[in-house]
Structures are given as structure tokens and as C-alpha cells.
Computed example of a mutant assay.
Amino acid sequence: MFVNLFNPYTHQRKQAKLGYSWTTFFFGCLPALFRGHFLWFFIGLLVLLIFGLETIGIVPGLYGIVMGFFYNKIYVKHLIKKGFQPATQEDENLLLSKNIFF
């Protein structure tokens, strides 16, 4: 399920996925880097580097599973803070149904 967002100041459009983040599940913190969401990239990188070596890879696996449930919602909230708004009424209703308020 995707939501279309529009920034009226920069006239940018973005399509963001809602629901489980399979890319975060498979690739850890790299999707945050590719989306330009550097704060969560560095948070994920620190978690993976600090705890990954101590737990022999258990934490990186758990990180992907757990963050897969949360990352897309975090990213959409980040876009809304940057000035993006729902492009249509359907997108607004979709955000409200996922408890994302703008």
C-alpha cells in the first residue's frame, strides 16, 4: 500500500510505502541511506556495529525483523515534518487509518 505525498513549497512528489518494510528486513539500515534519511541510517549502523559483533550476528537479524514493522511509518512521518502533505483525499484517509497525523 502506497501513499502519495506532495510538498507545496518545493513542488516535489514522493510515493512512500506503508506497512512492513521488506527492504529493511533484507538490507538493514541501507534503505534509510538510499532514501536520504541519514539519522536513521546512523542509528541503525551504530546498533549493528556495536551489538552485531558481540552477539555474533543475532542483533542484525533481529534489527531487520523488528525495524521492518516500524521504518516505513517513521519515514512517512519524517517526510511530513519536512513539509510534505497528502496529495489527495484518499492519501489523507490512508494516513489517518494508519494513525499518521500531519
Results as ranks from 00 to 15, higher is better:
V59H: 08
K77R: 13
W22M: 10
C29L: 11
S21L: 02
Y75S: 09
G28Q: 04
L18I: 13
F69T: 10
I58T: 11
L39F: 14
G57D: 11
N99M: 07
G19Y: 01
G68D: 10
F69I: 15
K77F: 01
K14G: 00
K82C: 04
Q12N: 14
W22T: 12
N93P: 00
S97Q: 13
L30G: 03
A16G: 02
L95E: 05
G52D: 03
G57L: 07
I43R: 00
F101H: 11
I100P: 06
F51C: 03
L49T: 10
Q12R: 11
E54Q: 14
D91E: 05
L39M: 11
E92H: 13
G28T: 09
F25K: 01
V76G: 06
G64M: 07
S97L: 07
F27Y: 09
I56T: 01
L30F: 15
Y63R: 06
F6S: 03
L48I: 15
G19I: 04
E90D: 15
L45D: 03
G44L: 05
Y75K: 04
E92F: 07
L33K: 07
T55Y: 09
I74F: 09
I80G: 00
D91G: 03
I43S: 00
I74H: 04
E90I: 04
M67T: 08
A87L: 14
G57R: 03
V3K: 02
V47D: 01
L62Q: 10
F41Y: 13
L30T: 11
G52S: 06
P31D: 04
S21F: 01
L79N: 07
